[in-house]
Amino acid sequence: MMVPLWLIVLVKSAVLLLVVVTTFAYAMLAERKVLGWMQLRPGPNRVGPWGLMQPAADAAKLMLKEDLTPKTADPLIYRLAPFISLLTAFSVYAIIPFGSSSSGTWAIGNVNAGILLILAITSIGVYGISLGGWASGSKYPLLGSVRATAQMISYELAMSLSFIGVLILAGTTSLDGIVNAQVRWWFFVPQFFGCIIYIITAVAETNRTPFDLVEAETELVAGFHTEYSGLRFGLFFIAEYVNMLTVSCIATLLFFGGWNAPLGLTLIPGVVWFVAKVAMFMFFYMWLRATLPRLRYDRLMAFGWKVLLPLATLNLVVTAIVVAFRG
């Protein structure tokens, strides 16, 4: 009996959604733990053994909070904005492959222009933030969302340029093909600068310290989500973490060989390697947050335009020349 395609996709999506949401919940717990350890605190440890039920407690709390809409807000857009953020954050996972076996790639959809589609979808995510800040009808969210827009535009350029080096080396835009092109060596080696640039811009794209100007607590209260409360704030929060997970996945796929095992350790299945690499990146983001202070806004812009963009261009040109000469 043939199982209809839509059913397969539906089941895969449901499973993936569950996995991503659970990962989000425990990534959040892990972040609080790691931040705690780095600041000589034990982190959350009261709910459940080792604090493992903390995400459930947080979720219950957020759901029970009052859902406020400011009087000056534009009600429709204000209520819609968190869903835009969340939807775009989740929809990226439709095309991210997690592993491969003899029967094919582990992904919901295998798109041949995967990396471009990811760029397109994540760019829509900024609408959630900027519309949310705009529609709140108050000054701090507005400032936060203006910053978000400017920051995303400036860093997305360098980010896309750092992708292109990989695309030249792999000769394909499908994520599958990129990973398969890294069987011999990971693109981390030939694209070292591209990788560094991507990691930096990814931090900026996800609005995390040291580039969290969008929600700079010290100046903007909470930035674009100052007016949000309860579950709507929760949606923004989930979107931020899922985005963090997304950029970790992309970094793994593009620069760290996806599910390819390092040192020929093929005994361990590829998906385990994939998860381990993503976890490593997530840890790196937490580590950065515990270490670096926030940049000043003009420095952030100057760094994006005057340092990252020229470097990314240079990297691209050099890669192109080398590939052209070596055939």
Binding site: W37, Q39, L40, R41, N45, T291
Partner: peptide, 21 residues
């Protein structure tokens, strides 16, 4: 300086925590 900062925070992860529960 950034690398040094990262190494310091990493080292702190394994220090003894003074917290009294």
């Amino acid at each position: 300086a950034i690398l040094k900062g990262l190494s310091i925070t990493f080292g702190y992860m394994f220090r003894k925590r003074p917290t009294i529960q």
